[in-house]
Amino acid sequence: MDVDRTLVRVVQTCHGFPSQWNAWTVSGRYLYLRYRHGEGSVEWHRGSDDADDTPETWNAGLSGLLVEWDDGTGGGDIDFEHFLAAAGLALAPDAVVA
């Protein structure tokens, strides 16, 4: 599945170990961004409040893993700009980041 990688809204949900964010793309898809122990990941889902959007639905093609990486540092926090670069994501010019 081709998932849009341009973010229009981002909310940081954890500032430390781990660093994590909820994000929405230009096309309205919800992404869960996480970085812990030097490992980053981006999961895509139908929506952040879909009650039936669980790991079990991933096999049905309704959610999945967009990208993951290990930077070898074992770190627990990362600034958002570095996360975007490592994940291959971009902010839209009018994006709201909170």
Rank of each mutant, 00 (worst) to 15 (best):
54 T>E: 12
16 G>V: 06
38 G>D: 06
84 L>E: 04
90 A>P: 04
36 R>L: 14
97 V>M: 09
69 W>E: 01
49 D>K: 08
60 A>K: 15
65 L>T: 11
81 E>P: 01
49 D>E: 15
77 D>C: 15
64 G>Q: 05
24 W>R: 11
38 G>N: 02
98 A>N: 14
76 G>N: 13
35 Y>N: 07
51 A>T: 06
27 S>N: 10
84 L>Y: 11
34 R>G: 06
4 D>N: 14
54 T>L: 15
97 V>C: 08
32 Y>V: 15
46 R>M: 06
13 T>K: 12
6 T>A: 01
21 W>A: 07
1 M>N: 07
18 P>F: 10
43 E>S: 11
50 D>N: 13
4 D>P: 05
42 V>P: 01
36 R>P: 02
12 Q>P: 07
40 G>P: 04
10 V>G: 02
84 L>F: 06
35 Y>L: 10
89 L>C: 13
41 S>L: 13
95 A>Y: 00
28 G>P: 06
90 A>N: 09
42 V>N: 04
97 V>T: 14
18 P>C: 15
93 P>V: 04
5 R>H: 12
88 G>H: 01
96 V>T: 13
66 L>S: 03
92 A>M: 01
70 D>A: 07
90 A>K: 11
71 D>V: 05
76 G>R: 07
80 F>G: 10
70 D>M: 02
16 G>K: 06
92 A>C: 02
52 D>N: 09
9 R>D: 15
50 D>H: 14
69 W>V: 06
36 R>I: 09
59 N>F: 10
4 D>M: 03
59 N>C: 07
10 V>P: 05
8 V>Y: 04
59 N>L: 13
29 R>P: 05
7 L>A: 02
